[in-house]
Design a binder for these strands. Structure first.
Lengths: 220, 220
DNA sequence: CGCCTCCTTGAGTACGATCAAAATGGGTGG
DNA sequence: CCACCCATTTTGATCGTACTCAAGGAGGCG
């Protein structure tokens, strides 16, 4: 079933494909590039990675022949695609994702957009777990929720999770989460209310700084 | 644009929706359940998690109102969805994902399936980075590639990555990867060839055991 | 042959986990 | 309303895993 599906993709796409040969250690695209195409890996190996400000890198996906990639969403690349070996890819216009099939409903387009966004968000999570310290993770989580819930400095962030859930999201122990919250509290970036699920966000921007590089911000 | 997209989803889906109210700490579904529906979170907070054999848990996604979930793919749930607060969700038949829009092409269906599979794979990666030891990660990576490339005991696994890439995929340092490979070599599960990109896989099943729980297998 | 890159091994350190105990708070029943 | 109990969080002490820094080996290529 899966195989049949992939064969179908191949057949339908091939009439619109441009084939590219790319050398070892060459980049197909890099973070920030405009996202004009998506790809199908024909031969070779490609890795998708993200680079953090402090130079630490996380590879979020390893691609083998048959894999599609480069449609993670958005106008610009949020990932870097590097060829690990001499590689052949088929290249397609990104617009095809919306155009193919005249009867494609808005619903389907929206679902696709949603899935692509999920993929992006999961990649962010991957980077966090692979390449951020405990303090950076806790700061990143609070920052994420503050942004998503549009919470300004001085306002209350409510999240109904217990510390156990908090820890299991961040890949840490309960105790470490608690300690990092205390650190952020002592630094004046948040206040922890008696109701343990509520925090006052005192300084969103500093949370972002800590999230990006706790050491550069001045923590230990 | 994003907002408009989501509003469109809402409007189109609502005619087919069943609304559910679910209490705090109740499960919407658990790993292994048949996957008959997908959902839209109307109110409350839901978390998607995976439990490892040794009892360690990783939350792979936190859902807020407006988020869609439950279409990660496959016949059975690979995630557990737990309500963190009293929650309202709209429930839809999974079949709608394939049926809606008569003009939906095989290409679009295949792309959707592919995206859903990617999401699943990324979740696996997330669990690895959040809740597996260095040795378990290295074993898991070799096991993954051996399976994917259909390599049997005694055969050669070629991966054109350098140790740097290996490490950045696993969220480890180069030195740690090297040490863990040596451990696996000393235990007789692999052999490391002079050409550093090639390994002989000596015992796929044991690699899987180590990947699942290195301590239970007998390491350190 | 010699240089350069990559990998491995070694020594010491540090971050976060684990184990243990104290503090805080919520809920229940008297 | 208060006293008690239980669950949860915080804090403390110790331990262990993986990181960092450093040196040594092994291949590849000119």
């Amino acid at each position: 079933m899966q195989v049949k599906g992939e064969a179908t993709i191949l057949a339908l796409l091939d009439s619109h494909a441009t084939n590219l040969a790319v050398g070892r250690h060459k980049f197909l695209f890099q973070e920030g590039d405009p996202a004009l195409h998506f790809y199908r890996l024909v031969n070779g190996t490609v890795q998708l990675s993200k680079m953090r400000i402090n130079g630490r890198r996380q590879i979020v996906r390893l691609l083998l022949p048959g894999d599609l990639f480069g449609f993670e969403g958005g106008q610009h690349r949020r990932l870097t695609a590097e060829c690990l070996s001499d590689t052949v890819v088929s290249q397609y216009q990104s617009e095809m994702l919306d155009q193919i099939g005249d009867g494609v409903t808005d619903l389907h387009k929206a679902l696709m957009r949603f899935l692509r966004r999920q993929l992006f968000l999961t990649h962010e999570h991957t980077v966090m777990l692979g390449r951020q310290t405990a303090l950076e993770r806790v700061a990143a989580f609070l920052h994420l929720l503050a942004k998503r819930k549009n919470i300004k400095n001085g306002e209350i962030l409510t999240l109904p999770m217990r510390r156990r859930d908090f820890a299991d999201y961040l890949g840490l122990s309960v105790e470490t989460v608690s300690r990092m919250l205390t650190k952020l509290k002592d630094a004046g970036l948040i206040a922890v209310l008696k109701d343990h699920g509520k925090f006052i966000i005192r300084d969103v921007d500093s949370l972002e700084d800590v999230m990006l590089d706790a050491k550069a911000y001045g923590f230990s």
